[in-house]
Design a protein around this nucleic acid. Structure first.
Ligand SMILES: [Zn+2]
Ligand SMILES: [Zn+2]
Ligand SMILES: [Zn+2]
Ligand SMILES: [Zn+2]
Lengths: 164, 164
DNA sequence: CGGCGCGCGTTATATTATTACATTCCGTCC
DNA sequence: GGACGGAATGTAATAATATAACGCGCGCCG
């Protein structure tokens, strides 16, 4: 029988990843249509490249990846696409890695939290609900008004722990 | 009457900051003595510079600050001192700012969380206890073994909210 | 003394990101 | 259709952050 998804966080090695990509692009189309944003060829391509796998992509690797394609390969090209995708909520920046991952919308509403596996370098996005509440309480006690939460957890995913 | 500390998180503008610095340096001496680490002149100086205020310091600003002092002003000088201080747990790196703040040990044991005010640019370090528990629960559900937690919250501190 | 490890100096380079300005593309209005 | 204006892209240069590689000097220990 097929391997189950590992609790829905890190996808099993055998999962249908093309489906992840198709879904991500379809979702992006939808979002852009709804909000009157333009998913131009560069932007779509960068999104696809980011979704090549579940590992965070570095800006200059993306730049390298579009060599030979009919786009400029100067840094602003990719940084502009990244800015657009970030603004549109289609990707996230992982601050502790200076890298970018596709948003899989598991956080639904509210801030996401990220699990970063140092074994396989994959990142899983989780709803940060419980964590967000705890943050809210701590912030309130300190008289602090929260704008944005950055929660990035490093460790070992289930698969990599089994390997060890 | 003197202004009270704002809930112990962000120090009041009028607080005795020299005391913060003295305490931080004294604590560093203690830690290094206990653990047989060497708080060399450069390392001590960088720590002092970081404690100049409660705002995060950028590596190259520290480098600039030691111009005229009898230290090399090449990047490795300051990065090496930062690495040492990070390893010793005397400072923290704020990933979302590429900057460094003194550890005020409010987190006691366990991972700290940081409140970053976009008004005054100060950073407060809080015990991440409740947040850490919530993270632990979410991670466990996802079959993920936590190594390191990065929790950085942007927003407005009490003082800056009052000004607005 | 001789070797060893650590801290530091020095030079060069890698990596990540932005500024500034020119050009092109596209929808809107006349 | 043609003029306009704003958004998107191209291009060149540079800024900001961080690391690699190598050598020297000094204290420690055998
Ligand atoms: Zn997938
Ligand atoms: Zn893994
Ligand atoms: Zn202070
Ligand atoms: Zn403030």
């Amino acid at each position: 029988m097929p391997e189950p998804m590992q609790n829905g966080a890190f996808p099993a090695p055998s999962h249908d990843h093309d489906r992840c990509v198709r879904q991500a692009v379809a979702h992006a189309e939808q979002v852009c249509a709804d909000r009157d944003l333009r998913l131009t060829p560069i932007r779509r391509r960068v999104l696809e490249l980011i979704w090549t796998n579940h590992q965070p992509s570095k800006a200059y690797d993306l730049l390298e990846a579009i060599r030979g394609e009919p786009f400029s390969t100067a840094p602003p090209t990719v940084y502009r696409a990244l800015d657009f995708l970030l603004d549109a909520g289609l990707i996230h920046r992982i601050e502790s890695l200076n890298a970018y991952v596709g948003c899989d919308a598991r956080h639904v509403a509210g801030s996401p939290m990220f699990l970063i596996c140092r074994g396989c370098d994959r990142v899983a996005e989780l709803p940060g609900t419980g964590v967000g509440k705890a943050i809210g309480r701590a912030a309130k006690r300190a008289g602090f008004a929260v704008d944005q939460e950055t929660v990035e957890i490093s460790g070992l995913c289930g698969g990599c722990a089994d390997d060890a």
